[in-house]
Nucleic acid binder design. Structure first.
Lengths: 235, 235
DNA sequence: GACTTAAGGTCAATGGCGTTGGCATAAGGA
DNA sequence: TCCTTATGCCAACGCCATTGACCTTAAGTC
């Protein structure tokens, strides 16, 4: 039987650790985010987190059921950060685009955290709020429920998928990242036209474009298609 | 100084292990794939792999520089499998769709392996062949080079991103997977309409749809947009 | 202010992990 | 048949997450 975790809002006794710091879910998540940035996506360990908090590693289990539970909390914090201060304009396409880019950008600011959380469903408050907002944009725009759900699904998963993919690149050890970038200038740019004619003719464009995220392009294409569907619905 | 790894083609002495099995790169990769399927994406460990091969874990370092090197070899095996036997029909949209679905499907057949390798760039033969094929489809369809590169970028990264995302879900420890799936039937389906009206009205549809991959939908929307662009070019 | 209670700390231990250096032995060329 | 060395094994190092037992002290009650 694992020890019960007291929910954050029920906590009363905030006993300081040996060294005087007072713990909280918020402080732990923030510290974890900082550690992920500093030590990489594999650098978040209970031992190191305890060290950074001046607390015993086992103390974390008073706040989270385990490292996985902590991971979900980190992900929800990222989503909350993404939409903090956002207000819809009422123009569905611009709003959807802004939400997507905001979420993607928030993950890019914490790529090491994004790698761990982008594919998880936490069901926590910020995640629910984001989903509600996206569905509301689509329904208000005039999409019937089934179409709204379909576009919502494609939109959300495209955004999260690109967040995970782009984060994985950014989170690579810098040596590996440079090696990947060099790939387009070395391997791809030097392929002979006899064996790989299409890559050869596109090499210069590839070398510049492949270093950036395809998410804005993919998002716009998705919104193009959604817009066309909305036209059909309105007829 | 790490011990040197003898390349596979230079191996001559195939000394059997204590129990008589004769090792090879191929055998190790195949065994690793089987272990990933059986024990999950976190279940591939040097110790277990050694156990499955009836060899000491340290023996693996005679074949790969480390576990990371082994995962790259596994990824290469996956890519080879994805394109084996594919032939284009000449109809650009159908061909692009087929390539995307094939790559996605290959990763889905080995989700635990995919999650380890989907976001790695190899620059190896099979990857180059796939890129050449996609560019060829687009150019032959009539896309000018810059447009072809843009659509190629969105197409390839969308496919890889969804492969990584969907594999990550499929590869979750079964307990976490069930928890994520249950989320749509429990948390989301029970949200009161007062606080989350849009989720509430969509809950039944969400509960069924969110358990499937959005990739086919997203892919079709991307191809819709590409098709519209092609119309513009032709005018 | 003193008493009680249990939340929230600490400590020590368990059984995993990747990786390495030293050593032994048999494969295969001479 | 003999030698060399590739390729296997072993033992050990320092990580890791997690748990159960224990202790301390903040908060609530009177």
């Amino acid at each position: 039987m694992p020890k019960p975790v007291v929910p954050e809002e029920k906590r009363r006794r905030r006993r300081p650790t040996k060294s005087g710091t007072v713990l909280s879910e918020q402080l732990i998540v923030d510290t974890a985010l900082r550690m992920l940035r500093e030590h990489g996506s594999a650098g978040l360990t209970a031992r190191r987190l305890g060290l950074a908090l001046d607390a015993d590693p086992s103390t974390l289990y008073r706040y989270f059921r385990g490292m996985d539970d902590l991971t979900l909390a980190i992900g929800d914090a990222l989503i909350g950060q993404a939409l903090r201060g956002w207000v819809p304009t009422g123009e569905w396409r611009a709003d959807l685009r802004a939400v997507g880019l905001r979420i993607h950008a928030a993950y890019m600011e914490h790529p090491q955290a994004a790698v761990l959380t982008a594919s998880r469903v936490s069901g926590r408050a910020h995640e629910l709020a984001a989903d509600e907002a996206v569905l509301d944009i689509l329904r208000t725009a005039g999409f019937p429920v089934p179409d709204a759900v379909r576009v919502y699904h494609a939109f959300v998963d495209t955004t999260l998928a690109f967040a995970a993919l782009d984060a994985a690149s950014l989170a690579l050890p810098s040596a590996a990242l440079r090696a990947d970038e060099e790939m387009w200038r070395s391997t791809y740019a030097r392929l002979p036209a006899t064996t790989h004619p299409r890559i050869a003719e596109a090499a210069p464009l590839l070398a510049t474009r492949m270093l950036t995220s395809a998410y804005p392009t993919a998002l716009d294409m998705l919104l193009d298609s959604a817009g066309a569907q909305l036209e059909d619905v309105r007829d």
